[in-house]
Design a protein around this nucleic acid. Structure first.
Lengths: 192, 192
DNA sequence: TTAACGGTACGGCACGTGCCGTACTTGACT
DNA sequence: AGTCAAGTACGGCACGTGCCGTACCGTTAA
């Protein structure tokens, strides 16, 4: 989605993304206009349009600049504890500013901009999911979960309730909620 | 969100929502403008603004008009089968047009319009969730699930992966996917 | 010399509001 | 019952505003 950072203009690119974050925090990412970003960053609109094809693309790069290395996940050998740590970290990131509101805005954009949806998945969702899947795979290799355990599906089941909370009910994401979800999942939702 | 249906203007209200659905299906709900709806419906813009305070409010009422009675859920005594039936029905509704795209657009709106978010929860999410919780409660009363079973949480865990699929990865919602989720949940996600 | 830049202006669209004149409903007074 | 005045919602139109994305400046820096 980034149109290849310019060699000379990299600091300008950063300045624009920084202004985007700052202005977005102040007035909300919905009300953010490219014109306002350009004005505050002391930059021509052309300079923004040259780098990003849409407001969504700009938001996405700004979001990623807040989390460049991605979340780092531990492997202590205890899969249950490690999963909990991963989800705590994800919830800490998504649950609060500045990442949370921006992420929400981006998911909003993704609902009517296919390009944003695809890129959001490729550049943020999938890389994080891959880390969780990798940790689950290690656990499976060590026989800590069943051999036929569907790792991708487990990922979706672990993440789903959190996104539901964040995007639909829009209630706070807390460690306490994570604990309740994990405890219920580990116990199993077994009717009859 | 509806500003109390007018006695005389009810058919006009319906005509506006119908035009909204029609035009939204043609050009997408993101590109939909109130001006265009007014023009096609042969109605003054005032007449729309008099009834709905925002585009989101209009979309929401249009959505609800597609599903006035809500989904009807069975109680055959088999909680596992009934849950599956519930989720099949929800997926059939959310997964395809015209309801699916409109719902997606609304969730998008909800990410930057608190009023839409609240009303969407009150008028659509919560009523559906209540039905699931009610069915789960009946099962608990009959001893088919543990007495300390957290019904609200179970609801979130059942729904979460579907919304994740719909809103984030934006892959098709199929019965097959529902089956995989349910089977995994019933089996329990038990590490170690 | 050339490319990227900041700045400005532009046409276009949709917003939300105000003001028309019209149609319809209502209710009071014959 | 018949009439009519008041009130209200309406369609249509125009307005000012904000932002879009593009084009064209003159300037700056490699």
């Amino acid at each position: 989605m980034t149109d290849a950072p310019r060699r000379r203009g990299a600091e300008r690119t950063d300045a624009i993304m920084l202004t985007t974050l700052e202005l977005g925090r102040e007035i909300g990412y919905a009300r953010l206009s490219i014109e306002a970003v350009a004005a505050r960053a002391g930059v021509g609109k052309h300079t923004i349009y040259r780098r990003w094809s849409s407001k969504g693309a700009l938001l996405l790069d700004s979001l990623l600049s807040l989390n460049e290395s991605g979340l780092d996940y531990p492997d202590t050998g205890d899969i249950a504890a490690d999963l909990r740590a991963q989800i705590y970290a994800a919830v800490d990131l998504l649950g609060g500013p500045p990442f949370g509101p921006l992420f929400q805005a981006l998911v909003g954009e993704a609902q009517h901009d296919r390009q944003v949806a695809v890129t959001l998945n490729e550049r943020f969702i999938a890389p994080q999911a891959d880390k969780t899947v990798a940790r689950l795979k290690a656990a499976r290799d060590q026989g800590q979960v069943a051999p036929d355990f569907d790792l991708e599906l487990a990922m979706a089941i672990l993440s789903g309730p959190l996104y539901f909370q964040l995007l639909i009910t829009q209630e706070p994401l807390t460690h306490e909620y994570v604990d309740r979800v994990l405890d219920a999942l580990f116990a199993g939702l077994r009717p009859s």
